[in-house]
């Protein structure tokens, strides 16, 4: 195995700590935004998972939500120790790997994708 991958594996999060998400899911991500110890500030960002980029330790996910009528996107490096929790709120059913077409939509359509039927 390539030595670079071996190094990356030691710094990566364990597989069990990251839930099996897929594009189109509504997810909420809890991350430390500032400070350490007592002054630590934690924030949860909930939105639609619209893209996944990179591989290995550099893998990032893009989450989009409409906040006060304004589209907001955040890119999270999922292996960062600052990201403490990833929760899947609901599962979507989409046929694209990148949902950039949602950026052009206005109103209700902008935040909704088809939902996966749960048994």
């Amino acid at each position: 195995m390539n030595i670079i991958n071996v190094i990356e594996d030691t710094y990566k999060k364990e597989e069990g700590n990251i839930p099996a998400y897929s594009i189109g899911d509504k997810i909420s991500i809890t991350s430390v935004i500032a400070g350490e110890g007592k002054g630590k500030r934690v924030q949860t960002f909930t939105g639609l998972l619209i893209a996944e980029n990179g591989s290995g330790i550099n893998k990032t996910i893009t989450v989009r939500r409409i906040s006060y009528g304004e589209g907001v996107e955040k890119v999270f490096p999922i292996h960062s120790p600052k990201i403490t929790k990833i929760k899947i709120e609901s599962q979507g059913l989409v046929r694209r790997a990148k949902l950039y077409y949602l950026r052009d939509r206005i109103g209700k359509k902008a935040t909704k994708v088809k939902q996966k039927k749960t048994k």
Partner: peptide
């Protein structure tokens, strides 16, 4: 020189590193 990658420090800082054998 083996190559470059990125790693996370304990405080969450992302640094680019060169791996040297």
């Amino acid at each position: 020189k083996m190559g470059m990658t990125q790693i996370f420090k304990e405080n969450g800082e992302r640094v680019s590193v060169t791996v040297i054998n």
